[in-house]
Design a protein around this nucleic acid. Structure first.
Ligand SMILES: NC(=O)c1ccc[n+]([C@@H]2O[C@H](COP(=O)([O-])OP(=O)(O)OC[C@H]3O[C@@H](n4cnc5c(N)ncnc54)[C@H](O)[C@@H]3O)[C@@H](O)[C@H]2O)c1
Ligand SMILES: NC(=O)c1ccc[n+]([C@@H]2O[C@H](COP(=O)([O-])OP(=O)(O)OC[C@H]3O[C@@H](n4cnc5c(N)ncnc54)[C@H](O)[C@@H]3O)[C@@H](O)[C@H]2O)c1
Lengths: 215, 215
DNA sequence: TCTTTTATGTGAAAAATAATACAATAAATA
DNA sequence: TATTTATTGTATTATTTTTCACATAAAAGA
């Protein structure tokens, strides 16, 4: 399973959730394909590889699909706990956001180096000094952290997180973090979200519009 | 030029900028490759396709590369103007961010539907009511907008932006916007940044670690 | 000057990914 | 029950993307 396929699976999962909440029971490959912006053949191929089967002519059962895909995506009854390192503007926006819970993601704590920030108790989740990182992550069994510290502190924060056993990183700083191999032979999972990079790609595509593949 | 290649080009550009600011003059394909996380062969292939040539055994001239890549990415002396629609927590974080300017990106205005927000004059850039969208975008010749409105207002905001001639969208709402074909036959460029989706991909990868391809 | 070293540039091969086409099958209908 | 219709599941084909391999050129050193 490659990265593109994971993206498709997570999209299918979201779409299915929405369809279920609309009261639907079944779905055809081409419905999902339209909603996810891919071809129906690819949807069927994906499910085939994942050994998820529908009924010939009957489509796929939504609850069944959700169950399968949910297990593949690691969805459990319990939400998945995440921490935020760097509670500035972006970090605070994430802490206040209430759209993660429905997706089974829970932000359990923030960390900051600034006493003015971690002494303030008006945040929606508790914010601690970095010194309490290890204690808090082990208490909540946190595997994933979001990095929203300034550029200069990014690399340092990353290494501290690795030290306390965090294995997944979503990095908002423009420093591209690389999943360096750890002592135990494993590599962390690192995703970099680079907003300027996205904008630059948009500018490029506007400058050189893709000529429609003549069908 | 496909999407992956555009990502690589923008990465090269950033890395080269950084190298230049360190005082370097030349760079080898393998340096760029390491920094961008790709193979050296691919770097050379990319440059070859773009008709950018180095010196045999001498590597590539950094100013030359920056000039070429900059032109491809549409970098000019003038920064590229962007607006923000929805000046809530994320929108404000973007408005306050000063890391875009060095990359030639300038946020020229914000828009919000809430009078409390657009009457407040303490923002780092002016914030207007939506009614002034057309006027402001034409004055500043804005082509690209960032959507940071609530989920429910996403689709409406998208269509308004299309109406006033915006052609590039960076969308932060979890509603996936699709680049519907416009009346003039062109399609807008739409990039969706979905934070929850990224986290879900990380959870998946942690659950099923990729076994190292035995070299 | 001659040889060695080192890196580029690119055609060809390989690998990865997606589309096509259609047999298999179940539901709907006559 | 027989026929038609609609949709899955997958083998095959096509396309895209990346790596390999090496000829080529320039610089460095002998
Ligand atoms: N704000 C944006 O729109 C935007 C856009 C693109 C990228 N980014 C990147 O996202 C990151 C955060 O941006 P922001 O605007 O929220 O910045 P910010 O300055 O508002 O917040 C950074 C926070 O990190 C804290 N911090 C500093 N060093 C720390 C450390 N070692 N450990 C823990 N906390 C520490 C600071 O006290 C501060 O609260 C930056 O790297 C920025 O480059 C931001
Ligand atoms: N905050 C996060 O961490 C986070 C994470 C993931 C996704 N998102 C998404 O990003 C978007 C913004 O999130 P936020 O936390 O900044 O929300 P927010 O509620 O803080 O801000 C939304 C802003 O949009 C304005 N608005 C509402 N309708 C509008 C309209 N029709 N036109 C113009 N402005 C309008 C509101 O007045 C408000 O100022 C949402 O879609 C949210 O789902 C946010």
């Amino acid at each position: 399973m490659n990265s593109d396929m994971i993206i498709r699976i997570t999209k299918y999962y979201r779409i299915l959730n929405r369809l279920r909440s609309l009261g639907l029971e079944k779905v055809f490959a081409h419905n999902l394909a339209d909603a996810a912006g891919v071809s129906a053949a690819l949807v069927r191929k994906d499910f085939s590889l994942l050994e998820i089967y529908g009924q010939k002519r009957g489509g796929y059962e939504i609850p069944d699909l959700l169950e399968h895909l949910g297990r593949i995506l690691g969805k459990t009854e319990e939400p998945q706990n995440v921490i935020i390192v760097g509670c500035g503007r972006i970090g605070k926006a994430l802490m206040h956001y209430n759209g993660f819970e429905p997706d089974g993601i829970r932000i359990v704590a923030g960390f900051d180096s600034d006493p003015l920030i971690y002494s303030d108790s008006t945040h929606p989740v508790p914010v601690y000094p970095i010194s309490r990182l290890e204690e808090v992550t082990s208490t909540f069994d946190v595997q994933v952290a979001i990095i929203t510290v300034p550029e200069s502190a990014t690399s340092d924060s990353f290494h501290r997180l690795m030290q306390v056993g965090i294995r997944g990183i979503l990095n908002f700083s423009p420093i591209t973090l690389k999943p360096i191999k750890l002592e135990d032979g494993t590599s962390p999972v690192v995703h970099n979200m680079n907003i300027a990079l996205e904008l630059e790609q948009i500018f490029y595509k506007l400058q050189f519009p893709k000529t429609e593949p003549a069908k």
